[in-house]
Design a protein around this nucleic acid. Structure first.
Lengths: 227, 227
DNA sequence: CCAATAGTGTCTTTCAGACACTATATA
DNA sequence: TATATAGTGTCTGAAAGACACTATTGG
């Protein structure tokens, strides 16, 4: 066998949030070649002694200014086609789900970071550099699928949330309308999905809604199915 | 930022089949350090101009002698902890599902290849080199989960199969008993899961069973749920 | 008062699981 | 004949979706 070759290894991030009732993606404007000036997913090279997840966390903080917030981070997939980057870079993509709390771009290294509605990017495949359109599509599909059988939608919510707010997350991510009454019954009957905090709020208008936190469930039984 | 470092990039394979009504994994015996003499998953380094999937297909054929058979191959996950290999190797793991047809080890480069029941390896975490126990666990769990909502169980079957044989695949992978009558009704009612070939066989004993091929469905509606 | 959202109850349909029963092969 | 597996029918309970209805706020 020929001597094995070393390659550049990077992580790219699909950072999703729900803003204005829409699923939005964090993009940066590339400052260097290749694809200088083009929109791209945030990311960067893995350090020699660094774990992949640590690299993703570091990039998330460095490039986006997102720090000290609850963030769900999971590995998505690895992209390594020889033509995906002229420098022959292998990229391990991570999916990050963050709540819409403080404006996340302040204090960022990359002052060009911006939230963009996911569907705008998904319908325009050439807007993003490299193979980032494919990575984004995979990330969005993963998020959509995981809302079905995991409590991951809560990652988009504040620490305390109402069932109505949780429903708006599902509607934004799935881009589909959901019956509020059936949704309410289903969430409150699924064991350990959410737990009451005892408080309530009227921030949504109308009758005060009970506040909930995330429950201990890792998997939803039964699952929430897409319409 | 410091100059990005290059790393060794490899693929490892979790090759699964169903033999003797058990889920079995293909292992090799390592011929070189590190972990020389220890059992491991087959794998190897990615070539400089090679796509990751191509590398996995090449390793599957080179190291195991599996060629010219139907094989389902999908990316599993990427493992890159700095301590997972003393040479600092990033490994993209692939999951391969193969039928039990011809003896797959004949003519192999690695004459040490062997099928081992998955549960034997899963309950003995130190039998496998590197972090291959973790990779195997992830692969088996992926296979178990995908049988629920995809027609992937058919990847373990011959080109033509009976519903009883398909059920035995589910039972082996899930290590669980399934009611044959409910299973039969469910498979035949799930649209496009399987299609009749017109033939039948008595190789299972008893009344002749109709033979089926894989149908066009990519996803099962409704899903087959684990007991 | 009205409008809005929260939350409950009820009905219908679908499907999973248990299992009785029939069908057709081999020994 | 007995026994094995294939395949169908029927019942029950769980849950999804449609939607009527009540509850509690603000304007």
């Amino acid at each position: 066998m020929s001597r094995p070759t070393k390659m550049l290894v990077a992580t790219d991030l699909v950072v999703l949030t729900v803003r204005d009732d829409r699923l939005q993606v964090l993009t940066i404007e590339r400052g260097v070649e290749p694809f200088k000036g083009r929109a791209a997913l945030p990311g960067g090279f893995v350090l020699p002694e660094e774990d992949l997840l640590d690299a993703a966390e570091r990039e998330l903080e460095e490039e986006t200014g997102l720090s000290d917030i609850r963030v769900h981070l999971e590995q998505l997939a690895t992209y390594g086609h020889p033509d995906r980057d002229p420098r022959r870079v292998i990229s391990i993509a991570y999916l990050a789900l963050v709540p819409d709390a403080p404006d996340p771009i302040a204090g960022s290294d990359a002052a060009t970071a911006a939230w963009v509605p996911a569907d705008e990017l998904l319908t325009r495949p050439s807007r993003l550099a490299f193979d980032h359109h494919r990575i984004l599509a995979d990330g969005v599909e993963r998020a959509r699928a995981k809302l079905e059988y995991s409590p991951l939608a809560i990652a988009f919510c504040a620490e305390e949330f109402t069932i109505g707010e949780l429903r708006q997350v599902y509607e934004a991510v799935w881009d589909a309308g959901i019956d509020p009454r059936n949704f309410h019954r289903k969430v409150s009957k699924t064991p350990d999905f959410v737990v009451e905090t005892g408080g309530s709020t009227t921030r949504q208008g109308g009758r005060p809604a009970k506040l909930y936190r995330r429950g201990p469930a890792e998997l939803l039984h039964p699952p929430m199915l897409r319409p």
